[in-house]
Simulated scan of single mutants.
Amino acid sequence: MKIQLPANSLNEVGGSKATTDRTTAGAVNTDAAAAPAASTGGANVSTSALSSEMRALQEALAATGTADIDVAKVAAIKTAIANGQLSIDTSKIADGLISTARDLLSAQSKS
Rank of each mutant, 00 (worst) to 15 (best):
N29A: 07
N29W: 02
N29L: 08
T30G: 12
D31W: 04
D31N: 08
D31I: 03
A32F: 06
A32M: 05
A32N: 03
A33L: 10
A33F: 10
A33N: 13
A33V: 04
A34L: 02
A34F: 01
A34P: 07
A34W: 07
A35E: 12
A35H: 04
A35R: 07
P36N: 07
P36T: 06
A38T: 10
A38V: 08
S39F: 06
T40N: 13
T40E: 11
T40P: 00
G41D: 15
G41M: 15
G41F: 15
G42I: 12
A43H: 11
A43F: 14
N44W: 02
N44K: 11
V45G: 10
V45I: 15
V45Y: 13
S46Q: 15
S46D: 10
S46G: 11
S46V: 15
S46L: 11
S46N: 14
S46H: 07
S46M: 09
S46E: 11
T47M: 15
S48W: 02
A49C: 09
A49W: 04
A49E: 14
L50H: 06
L50D: 13
L50T: 13
S51Q: 14
S51Y: 08
S52A: 13
S52C: 02
S52M: 02
E53D: 10
E53V: 05
E53W: 06
E53H: 09
M54R: 14
M54C: 10
M54F: 14
R55N: 02
R55G: 00
R55S: 00
R55E: 01
A56I: 11
A56P: 05
A56K: 13
A56S: 12
A56C: 08
L57Q: 14
L57E: 09
Q58A: 06
Q58D: 00
Q58T: 04
E59R: 13
E59V: 15
E59L: 13
E59M: 14
A60G: 01
L61R: 08
A62H: 08
A62T: 09
A62V: 12
A63N: 09
A63Y: 05
T64Q: 03
T64L: 01
T64F: 02
G65D: 01
G65V: 05
G65E: 03
G65C: 01
T66V: 14
T66E: 09
T66M: 05
T66K: 12
A67F: 05
A67R: 14
A67W: 15
D68C: 00
D68K: 00
D68H: 01
I69D: 01
D70N: 15
D70E: 08
D70R: 11
V71H: 10
V71M: 09
V71D: 05
V71L: 09
A72H: 00
A72F: 01
K73V: 10
K73F: 03
K73T: 10
V74E: 03
V74T: 08
V74Y: 03
A75S: 07
A75P: 02
A75W: 01
A76H: 02
A76I: 03
A76G: 06
I77E: 06
I77C: 00
K78Q: 09
K78H: 07
K78D: 12
K78N: 14
T79Q: 15
A80Y: 07
A80H: 06
I81R: 00
I81P: 01
I81M: 09
A82P: 10
A82L: 08
N83Y: 04
N83V: 05
N83C: 03
G84P: 08
G84V: 04
Q85G: 03
Q85I: 03
Q85N: 12
Q85T: 11
Q85P: 02
